[in-house]
Amino acid sequence: MSISMSPRDREAFLAERRVGVLGVADGRGGERAPLLVPVWYAYEPGGDVLVQTGRETVKGRLLLAAGRFSLCVQDERRPYRYVSVEGEVAAVEDPVPPAVRDALAHRYLDPDEARGYLAATAGQLKDDLLLRLRPQRWRTADFSAFAADFPAPGAATGSDA
C-alpha cells in the first residue's frame, strides 16, 4: 500500500495555508546541521514556492549562498500527512514586491490583524527579499489509507473479553 500522494494531491496540500519549515545548508563552517526555521510561504499548484526573508538575516544570507532550499509542511492531525519539496532558487526579487508582502500577510492573518501587521512592519519592505523556489524533488506521505486498517483510539474492537 502506497502512502505517497499523487502530484495533484501534493500540490493541493502544499497550496493550503500552513506554516512551513524551511531547511537550508549552513555553510558557515564546522560541523553545522542545516538551518531549519518556520516560515510563511505562498504556493499555487504548478508554480514556485515564495518565501520572504530579511536580506541580512542568517537565513537570508544562507539562502543566497546555497541557491537552493527545502520546505516541509505537515498536518499533525491523524491521519498524518506531509509534503516536502526542494529545489533551486529560481529568482530573487529585491526588494519584496509590496503586493506579495500584502498577500502573505492576508494569507496567514485575519484582515484586521494583517492591516496592523503590515503597518507595524512597513519598514521591512526595504530590508526584505523574496525567493522563488522551483520545485524539483517532492517527498510526500498520506497515512489515510494505512490508518483506515486500524481502529480509532477508544473504538470497540468487537470482542467481549
Rank of each mutant, 00 (worst) to 15 (best):
W40Q: 08
R77I: 05
A12C: 13
G154P: 06
G54I: 10
V85T: 13
D75G: 10
P45W: 05
R137S: 08
A122K: 12
A66L: 08
A120C: 08
L50K: 04
A15L: 02
A91L: 07
L109A: 09
A105N: 12
D112C: 03
V83S: 00
R101H: 12
R101P: 01
R18E: 09
R28D: 08
H106V: 03
R134L: 05
V100L: 12
V73G: 00
A90Q: 05
G23K: 05
G46T: 10
T57Q: 07
E86P: 02
Q124K: 07
L36W: 04
D75Q: 11
F13C: 00
L109C: 06
R107W: 09
L130T: 11
P34I: 14
S4E: 15
L22C: 07
D48T: 14
R10Y: 02
G27W: 04
E88T: 14
G20R: 00
G123D: 15
P111T: 06
T57D: 09
L50Q: 11
Q74N: 10
G158V: 10
E113H: 06
P151W: 10
D9R: 03
F146H: 15
A66D: 07
D26W: 04
S4K: 12
D48H: 14
P7F: 12
E86C: 06
K126Q: 13
L125Y: 08
T57V: 13
V73E: 00
D128H: 09
S144D: 10
P34K: 06
G116M: 06
P111R: 07
R17Q: 14
T57R: 09
G47I: 08
P111I: 05
Y117G: 01
V85C: 08
